[in-house]
Design a protein around this nucleic acid. Structure first.
Lengths: 136, 136
DNA sequence: TATTATCCTATAGGATTAGTAGAATTTAAA
DNA sequence: TTTAAATTCTACTAATCCTATAGGATAATA
């Protein structure tokens, strides 16, 4: 399941990418336009900023703005920051790998191998999809 | 994330599919071989039985056995029974559809359309993969 | 200095997950 | 007919994660 956090985060990024001049947009504006709880969105934008997707400006006339070109923002990186691993099982994750404690041999594990396939096909989509592609 | 329930369930199905004569296999045997908590596995096998994948026999010499040919068990159906929806978002699910309450127009929603793509590619894998394929 | 906005920490409530306990029921074999 | 072995069923619990919400601190602008 995609968390609401992720869904809201992507929607916010899309909203921001429409302001090509990169003028700061206030949380309130995004929150209202996309029907997202204001305080919740606040925390989401904060993590997007901390992870290098957004810049922010405090005080009057402040807000959030995209720091990179929409073409340069891959969905795979957005997903990893907001939703965590893309793989369905930690033992198959490229960026969040963890060994299963029940499974003695990964290569012999049918579940493992099945999930590798799923990961690859999902990753192919997220890697080839930029924020700019989403808007088209 | 794939739940442990699902992971264990698939492993149990694989274990059972190796007994081609379909003689009942006891929970205890599966539990030990696959390192799965006995009681937890118990409840998993029960739902697999209630959903037509397994048969069971009580009493001495009893246990669980496959009710269908491994070739006839599609991973998509196993996933749906144990893990729930295959789609990452309810508004994109074929079997567990639910409307988003924040989104006025699905077709105009970029997240929606992205997740349709992911669903299709994942579903393609699960639909074309049978229990028998997993063992090869 | 007043106002506007983000920044940050903490926390609450609900849902889900993973697992546990224990008694009831059924069956086969002694 | 008794006993032992197995599933079945209901209910419970502990831990974790998700979705927010609260409230004050901090910074920038007019």
């Amino acid at each position: 399941m995609l968390s609401k956090k992720t869904k809201y985060g992507i929607k916010a990024l899309i909203y921001l990418s429409k302001y090509e001049d990169n003028a700061p947009v206030q949380i309130e504006a995004i929150s209202k336009s996309e029907n997202i709880s204001r305080k919740f969105l606040e925390s989401i934008l904060l993590t997007l900023r901390k992870n290098g997707f957004l810049g922010s400006k405090k005080g009057k006339g402040g807000g959030y703005y995209l720091i990179k070109e929409p073409e340069a923002i891959k969905m795979s990186s957005v997903m990893r920051v907001l939703d965590g691993p893309i793989a369905m099982v930690p033992c198959v994750s490229l960026n969040f790998y963890e060994k299963c404690d029940d499974c003695p041999d990964e290569n012999a594990c049918a579940v493992h191998n099945l999930m590798v396939e799923v990961r690859d096909s999902t990753l192919k989509i997220f890697n080839n999809k930029s924020l700019a592609d989403l808007i088209k």
